[in-house]
Computed example of a mutant assay.
Amino acid sequence: MHAHGDDFVVIDMRGKIDLITSEVARRLGDRNRGIGFNQLAVILDCDDAAARLRFWNPNGSVLDTCGSATRGVADMLMREANSSTIVLRTNRGLLTCTRESEQCVSVDMGRPLLHWQDIPLTEEVDTNALSLPGSPTACSMGNPHCTFFVEELASVDVATIGPKIENHPLFGNKTNVHFVEVVDRSHIRLRIWERGGGIPLGSGSCSCGAVVGGIRRGLLDDTVEVQCDGGPVKVHWDGVGSVFLTGPVEAVFCGTVAV
Rank of each mutant, 00 (worst) to 15 (best):
G214Y: 09
R189F: 07
D222T: 14
F179V: 09
P232L: 06
G239I: 10
V158M: 09
G255V: 04
I161V: 15
D184K: 05
G241F: 05
S207W: 05
G213R: 10
G218H: 09
D221S: 13
V226Q: 06
V226I: 04
L220K: 04
C254M: 11
V233P: 00
R195M: 11
W237S: 08
F171I: 13
L245I: 05
F179A: 11
F244A: 07
L245Q: 09
W193T: 08
Q227D: 14
D184Q: 10
E225C: 08
H236A: 13
C254R: 13
T160F: 06
S203N: 08
P169H: 05
L219I: 07
V182H: 01
G196S: 07
V180A: 05
H178W: 00
I192E: 02
W237C: 10
Q227W: 06
I188A: 00
G172R: 13
R189S: 10
E166V: 07
R195N: 08
R191Q: 08
I188D: 06
E194W: 06
F179W: 06
K174D: 03
C208Y: 01
R189E: 08
D229V: 02
S205I: 05
E225D: 13
V226M: 08
D222K: 13
G255A: 05
N176S: 08
I199E: 15
V158I: 14
G202K: 03
A159V: 08
S207F: 02
R189L: 13
T246I: 12
H236T: 15
V211R: 02
G162V: 11
H178Y: 00
V257M: 09
G196Y: 06
G196H: 04
S242C: 09
R216G: 01
L201G: 00
H168L: 13
V177A: 10
F244L: 15
V177K: 07
V211D: 05
A210Q: 07
G209R: 02
L245A: 10
P169I: 07
L190W: 02
V240S: 14
P248M: 09
L245K: 03
T246K: 14
V183T: 13
V249K: 02
G214T: 07
G218K: 02
R217E: 10
V257F: 12
G204S: 10
V235F: 02
V240E: 15
G247S: 11
D221P: 01
W237Q: 11
